[in-house]
Design a protein around this nucleic acid. Structure first.
Lengths: 144, 144
DNA sequence: GTTTTTGCAAACAATTTGCAGGGAT
DNA sequence: ATCCCTGCAAATTGTTTGCAAAAAC
């Protein structure tokens, strides 16, 4: 937590209790791809006065500082995940269309593909998003 | 256009003038990744009484019938593209963060990756979305 | 005591919905 | 005559913003 205080300070921001709480929630639910509303539901128990607006503002700030990354699964809202850049670049998602659960997996084979795209299209790649939609092993067992 | 009439009929729907017009606009702007609002702007010239609500309902219907596919580039609104499934599966996007232009490219190397995921995760893949964000060749030349 | 940061409520933008009228079969 | 389809306006949802008060330095 000292880490985050320092990180904010260095950029001219303060680690307020609200921001601390939001970061805590993100840390505790690391693999969960929380939405702003999800975070609100988790913080409201601890600190009912914390407003959704503050959550959005904090997430915007943390995104700017690269503490969190926004991910859009196309389900109508933004989701946020903690993580450092090096991880995230090789980190993708499997979204189950039955139970909506999101699995993660890591791979780095996009590297060579990116090289090819840069050569063939002259397109300088900064980031990518790869999302697979399908049916997870659990739902396949319960063959819905 | 007969094709679409048949397609709708077979599913119990009618090819109304409004639906026809929306399909025409999609056909004429095939590579354009139009949003609902874009389509509205294009139809309103021809047929000013056509409402945005009808466009949304038509796009929902066409999505259901697999005539169009929704694509979410994470820019806050849904975009729609015509196309048959076989194409779309090997069809990805390069989104320029400078000029917002969207290039397309086709590749099918995700096949082997999908096989691996199915084996390792027991996850049955139905679809995927791969989007690269970066700087297009044009914007690189004008070195912004 | 100035600068951040917050909570509240209002504003906003994209999309959806309820309903009553219009059109096709 | 029924059922599908449409336009309109209102509702909904996710997110952003203006402003005045509270907190941090």
């Amino acid at each position: 937590m000292m880490i985050y205080q320092k990180l904010l300070r260095n950029s001219g921001y303060k680690l307020t209790p609200q921001r601390q709480l939001i970061i805590d929630v993100l840390l505790e639910n690391n693999q969960s791809h929380l939405s702003a509303e999800d975070i609100y539901q988790l913080t409201v128990e601890v600190s009912p006065e914390l407003s959704l607006a503050t959550i959005y503002r904090t997430l915007e700030l943390l995104t700017e500082l690269k503490v969190v990354k926004q991910v859009n699964f196309g389900d109508g809202l933004m989701r946020y995940e903690l993580g450092d850049d090096s991880d995230l670049h090789h980190h993708h998602h499997l979204v189950c269309v039955v139970c909506q659960k999101i699995e993660e997996f890591n791979e780095d084979w996009l590297g060579e593909i990116e090289d090819r795209i840069e050569q063939e299209h002259g397109f300088q790649i900064l980031d990518h998003r790869l999302i697979f939609q399908g049916i997870c092993s659990n739902c396949r067992k319960n063959d819905n």
